[in-house]
Design a protein around this nucleic acid. Structure first.
Lengths: 128, 128
DNA sequence: TTTCTTGCAAAAGTTTTGCATCTAA
DNA sequence: TTAGATGCAAAACTTTTGCAAGAAA
């Protein structure tokens, strides 16, 4: 078992994620942490992300064709919306979808993820 | 505009995808194509995948924490199921989910993707 | 002290590109 | 012919690892 040490870099990375209002990329986490600890290395970001994922503090948000984004876990169940024009990813409050049965016999579902694509308010206004 | 040439390698790659009953990785596509054209290079696979995606013949299936898989586009709308034990990805017939309104004002949805996680028939039987 | 963590750099895995050659049209 | 496609190798990215040095506990 691991002993989970409370280091300055780990604390800083948690802060960066905590303060963000949207899922962040590893680069954004690194940049945010650099503001506090300029010497913090990229490997530490990856190692911390893995530790925080294992710990269940963080969750990965996967967007087709991009590297993973990460956000604080433990929020109310929600999904994501990617604007196909400006590429921003938004969090949608609540679970706007309903997953119904329809699984093959013997299959057991334990979770799901939903990604909705479209145009966000700003972009849909522009294209009208 | 591009002229889309009907080459032997492009034809072979289409065949491999067409024959598969599940989404394939680039390695699986390469391996499958090698059976017909041993000299076919990895770069050709990537270039073909991109061309076929642009053309709308192929679609990418993104699974968290893995490289993308690809499947024939134009099938009936469906989603995917990943067995968290054996890691196999299955296609689910039909759209077993229902995406309800609940988008912020001004947002317009044009599509969605659903990924369901759990245990497939074989694995859930074993763990019982 | 002891053991986990960090930084750096090197390594590994994946996808893209440059370029000479080849080939479908 | 001739513009697009291919193969190979090198380059570009992203993520992981080895190791010596640093820092929690």
């Amino acid at each position: 078992m691991s002993a989970e040490r409370n280091t300055r870099q780990r604390r800083t990375i948690r802060d960066v994620v905590e303060r963000a209002d949207r899922p962040l990329s590893t680069d954004e986490i690194l940049a945010g942490a650099h503001a506090t600890i300029p010497s913090l290395g990229r490997a530490t970001v990856y190692r911390s992300i893995r530790a925080l994922l294992d710990e269940g503090w963080l969750t990965a948000v996967d967007i087709p064709g991009r590297t993973s984004l990460y956000e604080r876990a433990g929020k109310a169940h929600h999904h994501h919306f990617e604007c196909t024009q400006c590429k921003r990813v938004y969090e949608l409050d609540g679970c706007a979808s309903e997953i119904r049965g329809e699984l093959p016999a013997g299959f057991v579902a334990t979770g799901h993820g939903v990604m909705i694509f479209g145009a966000c308010a700003a972009c849909s206004r522009l294209s009208r």
